[in-house]
Amino acid sequence: MKFLDEAKIFVKAGDGGPGCVSFRRERYVPRGGPDGGDGGKGGDVVFVVDPSLNTLSEFRRKKRFIAQRGEAGRGKSQHGRAGKDLVVRVPPGTIVKDAETGRILKDLTTPGTRWIAARGGKGGKGNERFKSATRQAPRFAQPGRPGEERWLDLELKLIADVGLVGEPNAGKSTFLSRVTSARPKIADYPFTTIRPMLGVADLTDERTLVIADIPGLIEGAHKGIGMGHQFLKHIERTKVLLIILDLSLGKAAALKSFETLMNELSGYHDSLNRKPLVVALNKIDLLGVSERSECVELCNYFIQKGISCHPISGVTGEGVAQLLETLWLKARGPNPDDLPGCI
């Protein structure tokens, strides 16, 4: 299933059923009074947050969602049956906007949440409702009211504990495949990841971390270069950011990469710079003895800035378990003194 994080759809609630014009027709009652029943209410279009979904791909082909209309009223004071509600499933993190005005109507984040996107029309009153002392035989009834209808823009922002941030080929996908059951495409060239991915890392004691991997960021991503806007929005809801740096390119290159990434984050939205940060110095399996000493120096540099730092290897798994523990503590908002630093 292809990843889709934006969609435009049309929703229409069911129209109300018309009221009935009817009179009693019974033996020995030649002039029976009005007994037309009311029409049934039209069905609503209801959005339900389904945690098993993580993409808007279901809206790739189906664009129109129309609920059932209410049934017409009947004689003998029988009311029409209400139309069935139409349930539309959306993933957590779906933002619903009015397509015409751009106004945000609902931010659907909590699994199980139900929200009525379009309300069904009321059923019309039957002629029995209009009987009075001065009007004994009303020969009219109300039509049902039309259901609400509108075009909606859907935008998905993934919800995760940890957001992976790094330049192309920094090893994010390798790390994600190491710690979760996700199976991203991995190769030794830039832009292997071309769509956001979610994975769940299992820690001990039934603890889990939901991790979002976005495609690598390049300079100018916050301006939309390299589809930066489409990717950066998926880490807005994360609790902690994991900056993955490729240490195999050297200390200077890793520092430059860190500065570039931080500039892109702050350029997109200030809130990203205020999130808890953890730095992972990746690919230490490729380092020699002298290069490992540089790794320690660089890690101490980040710790002095108040940023937890971990040398790791996404390929061999070295240092990964301790990194996950730090991410768990950061995501749960612990005492900073509890956080491990360089290992």
Rank of each mutant, 00 (worst) to 15 (best):
N263R: 13
A254Y: 00
C309L: 01
M262V: 14
E294Q: 11
G216V: 04
G16F: 04
I243Y: 10
T134N: 15
G306A: 10
K2W: 02
L176E: 08
A141I: 12
S181K: 14
K223L: 13
K106F: 03
V49W: 01
V87C: 08
I211M: 02
T101S: 15
W328K: 04
K172D: 05
I284R: 01
L242S: 00
R178H: 14
P91M: 10
D35W: 09
G42N: 11
G36W: 08
L86I: 13
P51K: 12
G75A: 14
E294V: 02
F59V: 07
M1T: 10
F3Y: 15
K84A: 15
F302D: 00
F47N: 00
I218C: 13
D153Q: 10
E6R: 13
V200R: 08
K172M: 07
F3Q: 08
R150P: 03
T94Q: 01
E291C: 02
K239P: 00
Y28A: 11
T326P: 00
G267V: 02
G83C: 10
W151I: 06
G19Q: 08
R332N: 13
I104F: 00
A221P: 11
L152V: 05
L281C: 03
E71G: 12
D337N: 15
K62W: 12
K8M: 06
I244V: 15
P51N: 12
M1K: 04
